[in-house]
Write a protein that binds this DNA or RNA. Structure first.
Lengths: 196, 196, 196, 196
DNA sequence: AATGAATGAGGATTCATTCAT
DNA sequence: GATGAATGAATCCTCATTCAT
């Protein structure tokens, strides 16, 4: 990958990590549009040029932050899929406000940054497929309890509803949230592992 | 409202409309981050200062564009809710790529522009409530055919799934889309008006 | 021409002229590599952003300065070609240190700036052809007094020798200059209008 | 000389040669304005700091590259002057596009870099004098066949015409080139060694 | 002999906004 | 209504150079 060769400074550099952290913080707090060399540097307590020393272009930085977020998501999903009630754990994952808000920022960013879009697309696709693979295995015949559902569709549906709720909460909208959660709840119960 | 007092130029000016249109076009094509007085002016074939003449601040302009988009959505929703198969019409509305993409841009914008956020929140809430009101009336007892669903939840669920599909399509992700549409299809059929 | 549409500010603006002058001065004194928005602005006593207001890109500015220099050259050449001894006047033109030095800067600049290269090429070609046209008319049969010469070749030869002398003088080289001038002198005398 | 004391690393280091080569290449391809520690390092496949290790300042590097080019020119000239038809060989040397283009870059550079200017001046002067010395010896009385010419003047005239042609070719100008070459051709023939 | 980290200055542009006309 | 001029702050990015290792 191109950015790999351009990477400056040890993978493990503390400064590098500091910059990535500061950027993620800023995105979380103020949205992706707030990202600029100066602001990132200020937040990290560094000089702007040092940011460019580690990340020659802003794209390089943002893709790296995206990558970190993706790694974290991957870990969370694996944990969820390995839990007792994988489906409910997955739903909790989709409802994780801070993570979803961050993901939405990267979605928006992807519209304007081809490099980010590429990475997000790859990761989203991989994530969905990983979920399908495990869900198919875990749910087995249970999925038939939800008429019309299949694992791939279920993954997208849960993700979409989760994102909508988080997005609207950020906006300050509330109507329908409890009801939507209730709908999902009904599904989760139907699909819950047999307790026998 | 502050922007009301600041508004310059007749509400009905053709130039005003031109500016709003140009802005909407730009947002649709290049995302909200591409908005700047200069670019809007260039697209509209006007001088930058004229944009400021009509919209003293960029916020004023964006809120106005948001308002226009909202009005259009309102009209589309009323049409949908008045159609033969309101639920399917509503789903088509949620799946309208261009409108949804635009709505997502405004969501992202809302993070950084308090004025836009306020307007988006008000409108989203109103839109949802209007849907609930009509759906409750239209669906009547039919909603019970979908176990666990209620009109408010249904509205959010459809919106969320629609947005997710459009968002992911923009990204280039495909897995699960057909399956998710199939899930919704099952619901729509169950809730379709009795043909008797 | 593209830059025409991009031109901001009245053609006749005093500020515009000020910027062009300042740029020409800087090139003359410090070479083209010394040109930067900041330096031009400082020399003109203006703010850097004002330079960009009049000349959106540095290329726009440099092409404009090149154009001004070309206009001046044109006037000088027309004057020379209209004089009593056009050939000697042309030679004096080629030996004009300040103008030639400036032309050399633009030649160097042309290597790195396509827009400048284009303009320089057009103008040089036109200038040469104008000289050929007039020389052919003026010299008539006299050119035969210099065996092997023809007007087009003569134009290039004089230009080349002139440039070389000016260039080397700038460098601090002296050997051969007087002798080269003597060679040209011999030609000029042979070609001088008959005194009869 | 300052640069002598500042020079670090063995005169004969392969890395040193690599850097000088890379710099020369870059100048040839992109002009001297494209030279920067980073770009040179990238081209040479080295780390930027290593360039500074060998050449503490950019001036040091450029003077060295200039010196190498000069050495090469010297060798080419000695070869030319030792050939059967030294004058024609000299003319071929002046018409060598790549070398002349490079020389012009150094001329332009000399305007802004005193160290380079000094070196260029010394070398040009020496080169001219060496040519005069040999031409005087070689041409002997033959020079009288060209009325008004003398070896020093001839050297400058050939150099000037050659440079002008190469310079204009780079620009894309063509008028008069063939004719100027013809003029020189006439001289060369007149001065060719007697075949008797 | 080599290199990673750091920095301050400067590069071209773009921006929203103000103001006088 | 409309516009040209002006500006200060911000954008990303590149640079030569220094220094400690």
């Amino acid at each position: 990958m191109a950015s790999a060769t351009r990477r400056v400074g040890a993978e493990t550099s503390a400064t590098r990590a500091l910059i990535i952290d500061a950027t993620a913080q800023l995105i979380r707090e103020q949205g992706y549009a707030a990202i600029s060399t100066r602001r990132v540097a200020a937040r990290a307590g560094l000089k702007p040029s040092l940011v460019h020393y580690y990340f020659p272009t802003t794209d390089d930085l943002l893709v790296e932050v995206s990558r970190h977020g993706a790694d974290q998501s991957d870990r969370m999903i694996e944990e969820a899929l390995a839990s007792d009630d994988p489906l409910r754990a997955l739903w909790d994952f989709f409802m994780d406000t801070s993570r979803t808000a961050m993901a939405l920022e990267f979605m928006a960013m992807a519209n304007h940054r081809e490099a980010v879009r590429r990475h997000m697309a790859e990761h989203s696709e991989a994530m969905r497929q990983r979920q399908v693979e495990i869900l198919r295995h875990i749910l087995g015949k249970r999925i038939e309890r939800l008429e019309g559902f299949d694992p791939a569709g279920l993954s997208l549906v849960l993700a979409g509803i989760g994102r909508a709720i988080v997005m609207e909460e950020g906006l300050g909208v509330k109507t329908g949230h409890a009801e939507a959660r209730q709908i999902v709840e009904t599904w989760l119960e139907k699909l819950a592992p047999d307790q026998s």
